[in-house]
Amino acid sequence: MVTKKDNMKVYQNEETKIIVNEEWCKSCGICINYCPKKVLVANEKGYPVAEKIDDCIQCMLCELRCPDFAIRVENRKKVANYNMKDGSLED
């Protein structure tokens, strides 16, 4: 499901919400290239589109590597916490 609000594109299924801020995104392609599950594809402007959101494992790499704070991943069931001890994610 895709919704749009204030340049924010929201992709979501039951588990996951991926929010793309198209006003801030500069189409660098880092998130798309390094998504381990190839969830993201580029649209005609180079912005990421969460085409395979069902494959998302919420690894957060797109969000952590985004230089523009333009992509965000949320767990819809509970907010995942970043485990600072070993740099991994805990849920």
Binding site: K26, G29, R65, C66, P67
Partner: peptide, 8 residues
């Protein structure tokens, strides 16, 4: 610039 590591 696009892809600049400063933001990361």
């Amino acid at each position: 610039c696009p892809g600049c590591g400063n933001g990361i």
